[in-house]
Every structure is written in C-alpha cells, then in structure tokens.
Simulated scan of single mutants.
Amino acid sequence: MQTGIARNAALVVVDVQKGFDEEAFWGPRNNLAADENIAVLIAAWQETDRPVVFVRHDSLKLESPLRPGYEGNDFKEYVQARRGLGSGPELLVTKTVNSAFYGTPDLDAWFKEAGITQFVVAGIQTNMCAETTARMGGNLGYQVLFPLDATHTFDLTGPFGWRQSADELATASATSLHGGGFAKVVTTADLLTAVQE
C-alpha cells in the first residue's frame, strides 16, 4: 500500500499507560504486538525528526487505573524512556475525555501553528480514545493515518447483553474509520517504509 508521509507529519501516541496492563480491571485484550509496534513508530518518528505528541489520560473516576496519583497513570516504561530523545518537536497533552483534541494544551492550535496537516494515531484503546481522536482529526480536516496493529483494546459488553471481543471491536473501528473516510487504516510496516522514503 502506498502511504505518503509528510516531512512534518505528527505521531500521536494515545494513552500508552501502565494502568492498561491491569487485566483484572479491563478484561481480555487483543494484539499483543501493539506495544512493540508503538515503540518502533516512536523511534522512527524521532529518528527522522518528526513531531511526536504523547497523550496521557487523567481519569476522573476514582476506581480507574488511569487516575492521577496512581502508578497506572504513568506512561509505560518504553514510552517514558523515549520522551525527549528526538530532535523534532514534542508535546505532552493531558485529557480527561476520549479525544486528544479536548486536552491541554490545545492540540489543534499546536498543529495549526506548526503547519501540520497530517498525523498518525497509535495507542490505546483502538475503539475508544484512539478512534475518537482519529475521527475528530478527520472532522477537523486533517489527513489521519491509523496503524491498526499499533493499537489494542479489550472485550466489551454493550446494550442488550451484546458482547464483542477485542478483535471484533478493532475490526469495527477500522471499518468505520476507513470506510467512513475519517482516516486511512494502514499497518506499522506501511508507515516504517514511508518515513524512510
């Protein structure tokens, strides 16, 4: 698949936090390769001096493993270790809702000031904060790339007793994003090839 990457395309790393490793809270996850793929994308972006945005979810729910003041709020070690290593622009966004565009500082304003029109969304969860950020980016007029294999999610129960596996939810997210024109769904390999061109 041909995937063009702008010289200033941003990588938005969504909510890669220790709290998501607490399986007792979240339930079964999919895509065990997601963390490795996220890590290689961060490295590739930093090595090519492209902008990287690290997004952290500061949950307002007292029972959430992502609540501030709890270890689960911290970035996973491989993400924390990469912060500040690139010579390209870097931003930390904190949020309490799904979209990184409703965080602090204002991501849309930062993108516009830097002339960024294209970004990649990687992180957790596929069908929650990653998808919401991608959808909103598409609505705001950005070209959004969504490497599905650099995201993961968890099984979920919805209305009427419906239950979907993490893989089913990820497939539905990818179909809605790509088929609905919000984002182009790609692979980590597609992006790694594109950033070297």
Rank of each mutant, 00 (worst) to 15 (best):
90 E>C: 05
110 W>D: 08
23 E>G: 05
61 K>R: 14
124 I>D: 04
95 K>I: 08
116 I>W: 12
165 S>F: 03
106 D>A: 14
155 D>I: 03
58 D>A: 11
44 A>K: 02
180 G>C: 08
111 F>C: 13
34 A>N: 03
79 V>M: 08
65 P>W: 01
22 E>F: 01
179 G>P: 06
162 W>H: 12
189 A>T: 10
5 I>S: 04
114 A>I: 11
158 G>Q: 10
101 F>Y: 15
118 Q>A: 10
147 P>N: 10
11 L>S: 05
103 G>C: 15
110 W>C: 12
141 G>N: 11
54 F>L: 08
195 V>L: 10
195 V>K: 08
197 E>D: 14
197 E>H: 12
100 A>F: 00
150 A>P: 05
126 T>C: 09
195 V>Y: 07
1 M>R: 07
88 G>H: 12
45 W>H: 05
9 A>Q: 08
170 A>H: 00
137 G>A: 05
32 L>I: 08
118 Q>F: 13
119 F>W: 15
130 A>M: 06
70 Y>F: 07
111 F>P: 14
8 N>M: 02
153 T>F: 03
3 T>V: 14
76 K>Q: 15
66 L>E: 03
121 V>K: 04
131 E>D: 15
196 Q>R: 15
37 N>L: 01
136 M>N: 14
2 Q>C: 00
37 N>A: 06
123 G>S: 14
146 F>R: 03
7 R>L: 00
164 Q>W: 04
39 A>L: 05
122 A>G: 07
122 A>W: 01
163 R>W: 01
26 W>Y: 10
154 F>I: 02
12 V>R: 02
140 L>V: 06
3 T>G: 04
108 D>E: 15
106 D>F: 09
177 L>A: 11
177 L>R: 02
170 A>R: 01
192 L>S: 14
46 Q>I: 02
162 W>M: 12
163 R>F: 00
183 A>S: 15
52 V>F: 00
178 H>C: 02
58 D>L: 05
67 R>K: 11
47 E>G: 06
82 R>V: 01
121 V>P: 02
136 M>D: 14
160 F>Y: 11
194 A>F: 09
160 F>V: 12
20 F>Y: 14
91 L>V: 15
159 P>A: 12
132 T>P: 03
105 P>Y: 09
15 D>S: 04
40 V>P: 00
85 L>D: 15
156 L>D: 10
33 A>M: 10
144 V>K: 05
34 A>W: 00
166 A>D: 13
31 N>Y: 02
4 G>R: 03
59 S>D: 14
178 H>D: 15
54 F>A: 03
110 W>K: 11
4 G>S: 06
166 A>R: 03
121 V>H: 08
174 A>C: 12
123 G>I: 12
194 A>Y: 08
13 V>T: 04
123 G>A: 10
118 Q>Y: 07
42 I>E: 01
144 V>L: 07
95 K>G: 01
29 R>N: 09
92 L>A: 14
188 T>R: 07
108 D>C: 09
139 N>Y: 09
50 R>D: 13
154 F>K: 05
137 G>R: 03
121 V>W: 07
57 H>V: 06
139 N>L: 10
184 K>E: 12
61 K>W: 06
40 V>D: 05
57 H>F: 06
194 A>M: 08
137 G>K: 04
179 G>C: 10
